[in-house]
């Protein structure tokens, strides 16, 4: 039997967390500033319009989406960059050499990415509090979707990091997969505003459910029933964790 190493996993979690906190300007402050800029721009561009079909003020609608988008992107960035930096600099061997099981490593990496996502979310909300009134309809929906979303993206980040061989590979996935999917998932608009074809396409975008459910937790309305899609979201997160665990155990692309 393999012996458990909870203290080792805890240390890895702390290492990962301290790593992003050491460069907090880039990992926490910058995303908050970006979100703030979006809000300022849309405030002047859109005025005080309401979102058709939902009857919610546009900025109130926009902010939870921006927060979730930042959470998703930061969770992905945290795990993927940690692994690819390790591989490129050849320091990933220390992780492979440590007496940690694949499960312990995945848990620690994901936990740290989730913490980063929530810190970024808190930073954005704190920055916007002064400008906009932000309602909170259901804290448990917010937490549940926030948690599932950041876990899912942390897992995808791990898979991307394992697969990638250089920084470019990660940039490729970030810019051509993650960015479009998050931008086109109803952060800036309600899906009801789209032509029927694109509405249908959006049904297959996992980020759509994440962002809609998360927003529902704030504004109390949305395009989907967040309680119905939680199974889907939790299932996808679970599958992604399972894939990470299997890939790490196999040593795919990590151990020659």
């Amino acid at each position: 039997m393999n012996s458990l190493n909870p203290y080792g996993a805890w240390t890895l979690f702390l290492r990962e967390t301290r790593r992003f906190l050491k460069v907090h300007m880039q990992t926490v402050v910058a995303p908050a500033l970006t979100a703030l800029l979006y809000v300022l721009i849309f405030r002047y561009a859109m005025g005080s319009r309401t979102v058709p079909g939902l009857g919610v003020d546009y900025l109130t609608f926009l902010i939870p989406g921006l927060v979730m988008m930042a959470m998703l992107q930061n969770a992905f960035a945290n795990t993927s960059s940690s692994i690819i930096v390790g591989k490129v600099m050849n320091v990933h061997i220390y992780l492979l050499m440590a007496p940690l099981s694949a499960m312990e490593i995945i848990l620690a990496l994901v936990a740290s990415a989730v913490v980063r996502a929530f810190i970024v979310a808190a930073a954005i909300l704190a920055a916007l509090w002064a400008f906009v009134d932000i309602p909170l309809s259901s804290i448990s929906l917010v937490m549940l979707y926030g948690l599932c979303g950041s876990m899912l993206m942390a897992g995808l980040g791990i898979i991307a990091g394992i697969w990638a061989e250089k920084f470019d590979d990660i940039a490729l996935i970030s810019n051509f997969v993650i960015m479009p999917l998050t931008f086109l998932s109803g952060v800036f608009y309600s899906v009801a505003q789209l032509p029927p074809f694109w509405q249908q396409v959006n049904r297959y975008n996992p980020f759509f459910y994440l962002i809609d459910g998360f927003r529902h937790g704030f504004v109390g309305v949305g395009d989907t029933d967040p309680y119905a899609s939680i199974d889907l979201v939790a299932g996808a997160t679970g599958l992604c964790m399972l894939a990470c665990w299997l890939l790490w155990r196999m040593g795919w692309r990590m151990k020659p």
Binding site: N5, G8, T11, I93, M97, P99
Partner: peptide
């Protein structure tokens, strides 16, 4: 194991590296 290739996490100092390594091996 002392590996042949020398590489370190650029975020940490020697003392921090030793503390982290110790922790990863399950020792305070």
């Amino acid at each position: 194991v002392v590996p042949q290739e020398v590489a370190f996490d650029p975020f940490f100092s020697p003392v921090e590296i030793l503390r982290i390594t110790s922790g990863l091996f399950g020792c305070r």
